[in-house]
Amino acid sequence: MMVKEIERSGITVVHVANMTAVAQSIGSNRILKAYSIPAAMADMNETPEIQAKQRYQLMSRALEVLNTEIKEQTVFQ
C-alpha cells in the first residue's frame, strides 16, 4: 500500500519483494522478485562474497525494471 501511495505522487517505484503475491495484492505496479522473506536481497545460504554479487545484480536489475515501459502490473524475475 505504501508503494502505491508513493507511485500515486508520480514517483516511479520498483517493489523488490520475495512475496510477489502480496506485492500484487496491494497494487504495486513494477514488482521485482527478491530472494526470500528473511533475506530479500541475496541468498541467505550463500557466502558473503556471493551475496555481495547477488545484491549488486539484484539492484542492477531493479534499475532495468525502473526503466521498463509496462502496460499493466508486472512481476519481473
Binding site: T20, A21, S36, I37
Partner: peptide
C-alpha cells in the same frame, strides 16, 4: 514454506 517459489 518460507520461500515464494515453494508457496507457488
Amino acid at each position: 514454506p518460507a520461500v515464494a517459489d515453494l508457496k507457488v
